[in-house]
Design a protein around this nucleic acid. Structure first.
Ligand SMILES: Nc1ccn([C@H]2C[C@H](O)[C@@H](COP(=O)(O)OP(=O)(O)OP(=O)(O)O)O2)c(=O)n1
Ligand SMILES: [Mg+2]
Length: 1078
DNA sequence: ATCCTCCCCTAC
DNA sequence: TAAGGTAGGGGAGGAT
């Protein structure tokens, strides 16, 4: 547990720029060459007309003030080093300059300046200086040819490389020039990477080439001489107009951005990259499991693979293969072919996979240029920023590429056909593909959904034995594979064959389309020589830049003369050696089907638009649920969490050029140890959400500026074997392992975790609803609250965020109430009827979906007016399942008519009161318990029940606050026995007696769990109950009679386990299952 | 040397 | 409308 909140600092932030913005490229291209755009237009050859540059602002002071003020909010700029006095001084300096020198002098008239990184004076100050004196300030370095000078105070090696041919100057050049009213020679202010510079690797040589700065950009000067001026840089980075318009509509925002209640689910359902990543992980797991299970075929003759199950929807999670292997293969892999030590590796890859799959159902588009993207038909016209996942070969011939935006593609190929995504189909095809590979290969390594490496050394040798081995057996083998895949899937694959993975992969290029190519070792040198380093898998843009800078070439043939040491100097020892070998066609990696996962993460950098911290918090907690689900899916718990935040670059427009994209951002990462039970690893969504939110909160960003959020869990361990009898580190959520017949009663002996229960009987409860999500509906409810109450909520948040309790601050969980919880889950179910993408659905849910799909009928149609009359949010209402809609309607109408809540119906889905007013929390303490100052209604209705009425579980939030105050009120002394007893009874209401409901159990568990979290926060070391025999308290030195923290902590935990145990017993009786503590 | 933490980079 | 995710290799630089 981290005692102090993380501080944002410049050292762990970095900028995410979009220097290669394709939209910008296209804009320039069309500006110059309207109509036809040559495929190879190089940006540097393009000049753009422009309006007179914005200069000499009249209102310098005002802008200066406001800009300087802006600084105070930008950790990316000043971060932990933010230093008020320095900025103050800089500001005054500039003001003096403004007064002292003739404002009319345009001494920077010929300058176009980009400011790199953190500078002193700040970028804002310098920008004003530049503009005031007639220069042009470029917030981005899109096109270096447009910039005459770069101002900087420090450079990373990468930047040194990037700027090597540009004029890089210190800020003093501008400041002193302005002071003296004349443009001083820039060469007197050349920036030299200082002693303190981030000179890391090959710094010296790059430094010299940099400081020489020999080649000014003639481009710019020529342009200016011809009277042409710079492109309006801001225009190239202006907001997406579509998005700007739509974002101004609050309803639209609420429905289509991260503020929407089911944003995460909807997003992942449609994200191709998410699918690619998920599938890859799933395939690896499936293959690994299948090989573990592989049985040795008795006859030793045939390999075979059978797909036993294909899973549901787009998920492969429940897929399964049965493998048979000839006697001794069995995935050992060790891969050294016995005879000649030469392996045969094949790289198998579908030809334009998504398009090929899409054309299966649309053969009429075969032969035409087509792409797979979200935007369909004429949608978006020529201005769609929809990304192209896959382009057909006909489209590629026109220059369209995977990853391009649709508008860009339409410029290259106006007649392009768009095909929709069909994720489920991709999955099915892929499984067939892998089934075939598993049948024929010794070893299979999943590269992606459409791509795999196979080792066929042995399979080939066996085959050659009884074959007329004259021709290229490998090629023939591959062609057979191709035919089989084509017959089975209707799609073409191409196969590259060689002796290692590297060469096989490269061979695939030549094999495409729809072919096989065997690259034999003798041909490797010739094959490799003309390739660029970036053609090698694993080497991309950055590696190419570094190599090019050092060796003036990126061609493998030219690099043959370079020693391993030289390459390592540039790329690092391992990468250098890898490259050295790759250049020679050597790759010693061995195919592997097993590797254990070392991290799990969830991250969304699209559509992130919050209006307030309530929304941001809700989102973070939902994301935590997502991560937690993924961890549970693969049975891991983690000890480390890191939060990734993308925050809009202050220079970037509010709305990104790409529709709802993140735009140019600063990126912040902050890690914190995850402390689950007793400080151990966890997969609990509340704990994860708590950690993540605390980090984000500590950054103190304006929520409106957030553009991306990610939660990464590392330091993974296998989840403890479930089931009782294991020690105190179980998972939190309670879960019933029900065995109606066996009645296996497990004494609730082992303490630690509590696991929620699920009784299979009531169908709609057999769920994985774990605990109520404390986050999701927050914003809905919040938005619906009367403004006065809303303010109270805000105040509450504020107060809590600064109230130090057991550490930096104690987070508060918000509850959505039963409707929220249930509605959310039922909504998932309803949506689950359609093919879903999430592989994260619990098996229970899957079963449920299969069991009774018809139970969920069509949505109710209720006039908007009535909803409004009833104070129901139509947006929320609309997405609820019909059952809940009905329920809401009934209750709301009743309330409207009578001013009271209707008697809770008996139906299970209906809210039931589980707290009696006679047990009002205020009795717990001798002093009147502070009453919660706001109430979250149990349903969409905005007003809560009146005082004295039954309390519904939606007020779980109040209960939580109450528990928190209780705990906080007894930090120095142990809790009173009476209070504990009372609280125990209070909780047991929910799980015992006539009023008990499954939902009540869930809620009670939530409260119990919250209690546990609070205790853990202060006294986690005393969590584990001491066994009876060792009940002795460690004697504290000479400690007289003083009440120690340990005593208090142990008392609290004893109380906890007592209550927990009582609930356990009742739960066992009631549900006939055991309450297992994992 | 070897490990750890915090990144960057790469691939689909 | 659109859905810019995600895991792992490895380098830099500090701790051990
Ligand atoms: N930027 C990208 C790249 C790929 N993909 C998806 C769509 C592709 O169809 C699939 C496979 O990618 P490949 O790199 O294998 O490319 P293709 O299969 O489309 O073409 P080919 O393999 O024939 O070159 O991954 C994507 O969504 N976005
Ligand atoms: Mg492919």
């Amino acid at each position: 547990m981290e005692p102090t909140p993380p501080m944002p600092s410049a050292s762990n932030s970095s900028a995410y720029y979009e220097s290669d913005d394709p939209e910008f490229l296209v804009a320039l291209q069309t500006a110059v060459l309207p109509g036809d755009v040559p495929e190879d237009v190089e940006l540097k050859d393009v000049h753009v007309d422009e309006q007179p540059p914005p200069c000499s602002q009249p209102s310098l002071k005002r802008r200066l003030d406001s800009d300087v003020d802006d600084d105070t909010y930008g950790p990316s700029k000043f971060g932990g080093f933010g230093d008020y006095m320095r900025r103050k001084r800089a500001k005054l300096q500039v003001q003096n300059i403004a007064i002292g020198s003739g404002v009319d002098q345009k001494i920077f008239k010929s300058l176009a300046i980009y400011i790199n990184g953190y500078t002193d004076p700040s970028v804002q100050v310098l920008r004003e200086l530049i503009v005031q004196h007639g220069g042009i300030y470029h917030p981005y370095l899109d096109k270096k040819a447009l910039v005459t000078h770069i101002i900087t105070c420090s450079l990373t090696p990468a930047k040194i490389r990037e700027f090597q041919n540009m004029k890089v100057v210190r800020p003093e050049w501008l400041v002193q020039s302005a002071e003296q009213g004349t443009l001083l020679p820039w060469r007197d202010f050349i920036f030299k990477p200082g002693q303190r510079a981030e000179a890391t690797q090959g710094a010296p040589s790059t430094q010299s080439s940099l400081s020489t700065a020999p080649v000014p950009s003639e481009h710019v000067e020529q342009i200016q001489e011809r009277g042409e001026v710079h492109a309006p840089v801001y225009a190239a980075h202006k907001s997406n107009p579509n998005a700007s318009r739509l974002m101004s509509d609050p309803n639209w925002r609420a429905a289509h951005t991260s503020a929407a209640p089911s944003f995460i689910e909807g997003y992942y359902k449609n994200s191709r990259l998410h699918h690619l990543s998920t599938w890859k992980a799933e395939l690896r797991k499936l293959i690994s499991e299948a090989q573990e299970r592989a049985q040795v075929a008795r006859d030793n003759s045939s390999h075979s693979a059978r797909l036993l199950n294909a899973g549901t929807g787009t998920s492969m999670k429940n897929a399964k293969w049965a493998l048979k292997s000839p006697s001794k293969s069995k995935g050992k892999g060790k891969a050294k072919a016995t005879d000649n030590d030469e392996k045969v590796i094949m790289h198998c890859d579908f030809d334009c996979f998504f398009v090929a799959a899409g054309l299966l159902g649309r053969p009429q588009f075969k032969g035409q240029p087509s792409v797979v993207c979200h935007s369909q038909g004429g949608q978006g016209g020529m201005s769609s920023t929809s990304e192209i996942a896959c382009a057909s070969y006909e489209a590629r011939a026109k220059g369209v590429k995977n990853g391009m935006s649709l508008q860009q593609a339409r410029k290259l190929c106006p007649e392009i056909v768009t095909l929709p995504y069909e994720f489920e189909k991709y999955k099915e095809i892929s499984l067939k593909f892998y089934t075939i590979l598993l049948t024929h290969a010794d070893e299979v390594e999943a590269v992606s959904v459409d791509e795999a490496m196979i080792d066929v050394t042995r399979a080939l040798r066996d085959k050659v034995k009884n074959s007329t081995g004259v021709k290229d057996e490998a090629k023939e083998f591959a062609e057979n594979l191709r035919k089989e895949v084509q017959a089975e899937t209707g799609c073409e694959i191409s196969i590259g064959i060689s002796q290692n993975m590297l060469l096989a992969r490269l061979a695939t290029r030549r094999a495409k389309p729809a072919g096989a190519y065997h690259l034999i070792s003798a041909d490797a040198p010739t094959f490799l020589a003309p390739l660029s380093i970036s053609d090698l898998p694993g080497f991309g843009y950055a590696a190419k830049q570094k190599i090019e800078e050092k060796f003036r070439t990126a061609i493998l043939g030219d690099l043959l003369t370079r020693s391993k040491g030289e390459l390592s100097e540039v790329l690092g020892p391992k990468t250098g050696e890898t490259l050295w070998k790759a250049i020679r066609g050597v790759d010693e990696r061995v195919l592997t089907s097993e590797k254990k996962r070392s991290s799990v993460s969830s991250e969304i950098n699209y559509g992130i638009r919050f209006e307030d911290n309530i929304q941001a918090r809700a989102f973070v907690f939902q994301m935590a649920e997502e991560v937690s689900r993924r961890m549970k899916d693969i049975s891991v718990v983690g000890r480390s969490l890191s939060l990734k935040i993308m925050k809009r670059d202050p220079k970037a427009p509010i709305e990104a050029p790409k529709f709802l994209g993140h735009g140019a951002c600063d990126v912040f990462n902050k890690q914190s140890p995850l402390s689950g039970i007793g400080g151990g690893a966890t997969d609990d969504h509340l704990i994860i959400g708590d950690h993540a939110w605390r980090i984000l909160k500590a950054f103190n960003f304006d929520p409106k500026e957030l553009r991306g959020i990610g939660i990464h869990i590392g330091k993974l361990e296998p989840t403890r074997a479930a089931s009782a009898a294991t020690g105190p580190q179980g998972k939190l959520p309670f879960r019933f392992a029900r065995s109606p017949t066996k009645k296996k009663v497990t004494r609730f002996a082992e303490p630690a975790s509590i696991k929620p229960l699920v009784d299979p009987h009531p169908p709609e409860i057999k769920n994985e609803f774990d605990l109520p999500s404390f986050s999701q509906v927050d914003q809905d409810v919040y938005q619906a609250l009367p403004s006065q109450i809303r303010n109270e909520v805000d105040e509450e948040y504020k107060r809590r965020s600064v109230t130090p309790v057991a550490g930096p601050s104690i987070p508060q969980y918000q509850s959505k109430g039963p409707v929220g919880t249930k509605a959310q889950n039922l909504r998932r179910i309803a949506q689950g009827l359609a093919p879903r993408s999430r592989s994260s659905l619990s098996p229970q849910l899957h079963r449920l979906l299969a069991a009774k799909p018809k139970g969920l009928s069509r949505s109710l149609r209720v006039p908007q007016e009535e909803l409004q009359h009833l104070d129901i949010d139509p947006a929320v209402f609309g997405v609820l399942p019909p059952e809940i809609q009905r329920e809401q309607l009934i209750m709301a109408r009743h309330l409207k008519a009578t001013g009271k809540l209707p008697a809770p119906p008996k139906k299970r889905k209906v809210l039931k009161p589980i707290f009696r007013s006679s047990l009002t929390p205020s009795k717990i303490h001798r002093r009147p318990f502070p009453k919660a100052n706001f109430i979250q209604p149990a349903f969409l209705k905005q007003r809560g029940p009146k005082k004295g009425e039954k309390l519904y579980f939606s007020e779980i939030d109040d209960v939580q606050k109450l528990v928190e105050k209780w705990v906080n009120g007894f930090r120095e002394t142990p809790p009173k026995e009476k209070d504990v007893e009372f609280f125990s009874k209070y909780l047991l209401q929910s799980v015992d007696g006539r009023q008990a409901t499954d939902q009540g159990m869930e809620k009670a568990i939530a409260v119990l769990k919250w209690w546990m979290i609070l205790l853990r926060r202060s006294w986690s070391e005393w969590e584990k109950p001491v066994s009876d025999s060792t009940q002795t308290q460690p004697v504290v030195g000479s400690g007289p009679r003083r009440v120690t923290s340990e005593m208090v902590g142990r008392a609290w935990w004893r109380a906890f386990w007592k209550v927990k145990g009582a609930m356990d017993d009742i739960a066992r009786i009631r549900f006939g299952g055991k309450l297992s503590l994992r």
